[in-house]
Design a protein around this nucleic acid. Structure first.
Lengths: 138, 138
DNA sequence: CCAACTGTACTACATAGCATAGTACAGTTG
DNA sequence: CAACTGTACTATGCTATGTAGTACAGTTGG
């Protein structure tokens, strides 16, 4: 599920937040789905429980998950909608990177081609993946 | 010239590196141009000399500038060409961000529009700006 | 009821990166 | 030779990150 790169300059807890966002957007995590427990993830990812909790807290703060003490942590009802709004910021990042490409003399068609390619590849298959596998006991 | 944001999570020395890259790409800094001295920049930007030097070292390591002890620091001959190669990485970043936008259900036309807009705006006016202003004495 | 799970809240500690401060040395230039 | 240039140190402080351990309260299934 999660892929943590401890060598990355991106903090571990932030990697977890980002990846969770992607799972929600991709439909791998659906509204109401239960997220693996702090202690479970801690063992699975070989990361300290506190680090996991920090990620969960951030996801909670962003309104993407709802924590229920004693029960677990669940994907919020409006998580996907919230993310759609947030991800609009990507357009600004794309603008910045494109500006550098203009300066560097890279052809416009190269940039357009990348965008087209991504849309063609992903257009048909959205949100058709399996949720977390059975967490069993523990 | 340089705009440093001390509140940013991006380190100051990295901001200097990035901005210098942009100046080179934009033609504000041309091959052979002299970069303001460490002590000069240190005062101008209200940044410690060591921080400036760290940025210079990084630019040197990337082959964008050549330091000459006693004389100064100059934009390398092939700096612009080198950057053109490096900036191709932006295409990968754009790919990632676009993938998220697909997931979030943002329309392809919105993305394309941003790219088109940037190219239309910058296409005509490339590399027509003033270099560093007279450094005078000191 | 109770053991075992769940989230949450602490304190303490270690480490790394960033930035500052001050000093020192060597090359260049007018 | 004075004043600039880049470079190389050491030392210090701060912050973010991550780890470690403990504790408490709610939930659940046997």
């Amino acid at each position: 599920m999660y892929q943590i790169d401890v060598m990355s300059r991106v903090p571990v807890y932030e990697q977890i937040v980002e990846q969770t966002e992607k799972f929600i957007l991709a439909g791998i995590l659906k509204e109401g789905d239960k997220i693996p427990s702090v202690r479970n993830l801690s063992v699975t990812l070989s990361v300290n429980p506190n680090t996991i909790q920090k990620a969960i807290s951030e996801l909670d703060r962003r309104g993407l998950v709802t924590s229920v003490p004693g029960k677990g942590c669940f994907v919020s009802d409006k998580a996907r909608k919230a993310l759609t709004v947030v991800k609009r910021n990507n357009l600004e990042i794309i603008r910045e990177k494109t500006e550098e490409l203009v300066m560097a003399g890279i052809d416009k068609r190269e940039v357009i081609a990348v965008v087209e390619e991504v849309y063609e590849k992903k257009e048909g298959l959205k949100g058709e993946t399996a949720p977390f596998k059975d967490e069993g006991g523990q």
